[in-house]
Design a protein around this nucleic acid. Sequence first.
DNA 1: GTGAAAGCGCTAACAT
DNA 2: ATGTTAGCGCTTTCAC
Lengths: 341, 341
Amino acid sequence: MKKQTRGQSRTTKRLDIRTVAESAGVSVATVSRVINNVTSVAPELNARVWEAIRTLGYVPNTQARALVSGRSRLLGVIISDITNPFFPELIQGFEDKAVELGYETLIGSTNYDLHRMELCVQRMLQRKVDGVAVMTFGIEEPLLDRLASQGIPMVFVDLAPQKKNISTIPIDYDTGISAAVRHLVELGHRSIAFIAGPKHLHSAKSRLRAFRSAIQAVGLSIPSSFVYFGDHTMEGGTRGMEHLLQQADRPTAVMCSNDMSAIGAMHAISRAGLSIPTDISLIGFDDIRLASFILPPLTTVRMSGRDIAEVAVKALVEKDTKIGMVATDLVVRNSTAAPKN
Amino acid sequence: MKKQTRGQSRTTKRLDIRTVAESAGVSVATVSRVINNVTSVAPELNARVWEAIRTLGYVPNTQARALVSGRSRLLGVIISDITNPFFPELIQGFEDKAVELGYETLIGSTNYDLHRMELCVQRMLQRKVDGVAVMTFGIEEPLLDRLASQGIPMVFVDLAPQKKNISTIPIDYDTGISAAVRHLVELGHRSIAFIAGPKHLHSAKSRLRAFRSAIQAVGLSIPSSFVYFGDHTMEGGTRGMEHLLQQADRPTAVMCSNDMSAIGAMHAISRAGLSIPTDISLIGFDDIRLASFILPPLTTVRMSGRDIAEVAVKALVEKDTKIGMVATDLVVRNSTAAPKN
DNA sequence: GTGAAAGCGCTAACAT
DNA sequence: ATGTTAGCGCTTTCAC
């Protein structure tokens, strides 16, 4: 006699592909073809199968599909810091698009920590994700190789290790950042400082580079003490602004590599008994939703996390997508004004 | 002749449990026992197997394990709004704890939208999560039944549909909220308003209830026009404060159901040409990290999202855990002061 | 175009 | 304590 399977007995009606096949009077292969949209099924059978699926309330078993097909329908997204509001907005966009295309999302947060990044990569590998979006704006080579060696498609923001299976989402930093610099110059500022992001972060470097070339383009120059390397957190912004306020000849305007730094900078300005924009003008980067709610509402360079996320998902899923450049542009609010004197 | 499997041929060395078994000179069952920490394996074999695993670089196939065991090692967490900073902090805690216990996390964001909530539940069901944490502070009965009928363990915050497989994380709102009210009263406030959360949200209702009973406890009473139902967003907070400022006899202090509402309220206060805390004292709820960075730094009632998340994961995984009450307490910063006159 | 059947890599009965 | 083996539910070759 046949051994019984554990759990339910074979006679107890389970709801698997066989049940559907029987009910529709076709083979399991046909049911499989139907649910996978394989064309070569006669319209009539197709209809019968869908009917059976509906009436039975059948839902294919994801695990089994994943096992046999080798595709998990899982997408990984690696970010730096989920408590930086830029990333939740990005994640939201990522998940929405992923779900729309039938994927689930695994989030890995590195906290700017290499060890955590390694753990993230490991987790993604173990779960056999069908692709990973590296939105940390930077990754170490060896880790990258681990992913690449598995042939897992990857998408990066803003830097392009030229390898197979790797695509890049280019960001047009120059447009937004040079507009910001020109905005300050038109207001009359000549003494402009920059609170940068982490030194090793590609995106942070790109923003600083864009700032420098914009400054040069308007014929200005900045002392090296006017560039502070923060870490894209509020705390870093506070430290950066404290540093700048200590300068003998302090800047009349400060640009920040992201909005969170700018918010931290505001804190330092207020603590020093100064006010924005009267004493110091401030410009952020990202345009997180908070930027318009903070007091004073922050002038910033907008870069849409949602847009980036959508592009990333599409690049991962529809591999042949041509990836367009992501735009940035200046949003003028109330944290910028003409300098006092 | 045997049919060849698609993809790689059987002779090409694959790296599965059989490879390990051969290499260690044991059966696949033993390998399985070893990687699952089943006790009944002789120490010597155990060592041999681990050795083989290490040298081969074997990693068990998650999909196969999930299929056969019926456990996905996936945990779902349903939240309201990922762009409310309280939730990223919670998610971070959730993921960290989940990863620590060998689980991955699926995030569902409802945006306070019932239809999206339904989609979330569906996704979780489809992925056969081993448990779901409903952190939206509210869920509809029918959806809950869908999850319950699958026998999926669930954990809720702060409300307890008494069913099987469902646990609840109780929150001690009273301590923090009554401390906040007493703080205001001690400063001299008598006219205190409340910007509540969404009417249907259990947590929002609990907070309002705690506020009301604290008000009563100090012998005060509040007109119904002093309670505004917002939606826990900045926008809602702004509207709420605008509403309160229109009152003939406007409040001297306002408590908010969460920090984001308070930040929105700040916006309205500033737009009205008033200032905090000189003209109006303001208290938030949650103590998101931003609360201490905003200007002025926000007095608020602290409730740790990380703590809640950790408890939630433990409740889901180690089902027999006794769940302790989550504390709340007042954090006094600079958004509260004595009323003007 | 459709069906039969061989696995995907693993776990857990059952036998030893 | 260890091994043998039958599936988990599905996809995909191969034969018709």
